Simulated scan of single mutants.
Amino acid sequence: MNYIKAFAPATVANVACGFDIFGFAIQEPGDVVEVRRIDKPGIVIKEITGDDGRLPRAAEKNAVTVVMLHLLKHLGITDLGCEVTLHKNMPLGSGMGSSAASAVAGVVAINELLGNPLTRGELLRFAMEGERIASGSAHADNVGPSLLGGFVVIRSYTPLDIFSIPVPDDLYCTLVHPDIEINTKDARYILRNEVSLKNTIAQMGNVAGLVAGLMKADYDLISRSMVDVIIEPVRSILIPEFNEVKKAAINNGALGCSISGSGPSIFALSRGMENARKAGEAMKQTFADAGIDSTLHLSGINQGGATVLERE
């Protein structure tokens, strides 16, 4: 094949109590990557749209292409030439897995171009290198669900052990992105290195409760477990109106509400699309009352992950 066009969806990471171990994919938005063979060996970024010129154009410094370079090195391929076009369809620093979507779309596209020598599971560690270049940490809670779809759990990073769990069919995500930006590196920097035993125990209980609630379709248990006593109290300081927006979501039918990734996007989970929509409108209105524009996304859990849109 000479041309591949791939899509990778946005994601919600952490999911309240599951810092760096939980993540799920939504239907849209997402990034689109086009890869076309050229005669001259090497990876070249031809064009990036939607980033206002902010992303690096050097292949070794951009999440979309660094994953390709790692994959080609692993396979021992030195004579392949490709030009890459990246379409950014979500804001940078949004807390929606923007860099992860670029990395995943890139690694899926190059793998498809090569005839799929690696499985989706094998591509994960290469996609994580895109996160390393973008945020300084090769975490998998965004790239995992964007690549594989569904609700994923990262049980271990050393060795990497990731699996998915079933979720209720009637579970919907509300994702609201306020028109502000938070740098992922900054959001990680402010986190505490030490956590009290009391908070650790509480968080572990909520993690176990959320997994059980999702697998049993126990909406009350899901609601009780969507509590983050470690990360949210620190990161929420960076998000204007966070407490008010969260309260608006809960008061309008959401099961729970927290920060999506490192923020500033805020997500809620609800039973049924109507509750998700009602919660989202209330969240958006709360931001508007504070003079902050925001964008609303409503979605079920995306079970498919990244997809190939076109091939030639």
Rank of each mutant, 00 (worst) to 15 (best):
V33F: 02
I250M: 07
Y172R: 10
V104L: 01
A10Q: 07
L75C: 08
T174Y: 02
S223C: 13
V32M: 05
T174L: 07
A306N: 09
G209Y: 15
A217G: 14
N252T: 12
S164V: 10
T65A: 08
V211C: 11
N62H: 13
L55V: 01
E131M: 06
I21K: 01
I222N: 12
F7E: 06
D51V: 03
G93A: 09
G209C: 08
S137Y: 01
M96P: 02
G53P: 03
A202P: 10
G50L: 11
R188I: 06
V66M: 02
P56L: 01
A306W: 03
K278N: 14
A59Q: 09
G300N: 12
E232W: 04
A140R: 00
H70Q: 11
S196L: 06
G205Y: 01
K40N: 14
P178A: 04
A58L: 15
V44I: 13
D186L: 01
D20T: 03
A63T: 10
N206M: 10
D179I: 00
I38K: 15
A16N: 10
I190K: 10
E112M: 10
R155H: 15
R188H: 11
I190G: 13
L197Y: 03
A100P: 06
M283H: 11
A25L: 00
A134T: 03
T184K: 04
K185L: 10
E274A: 15
F151R: 05
N142G: 01
N2C: 06
L191Q: 08
G30I: 12
T295N: 02
G95T: 07
G149L: 06
A58C: 00
E310T: 12
E274V: 06
A127C: 09
F151L: 02
E47P: 00
N116I: 02
D79C: 08
G263M: 04
A58F: 05
I250L: 15
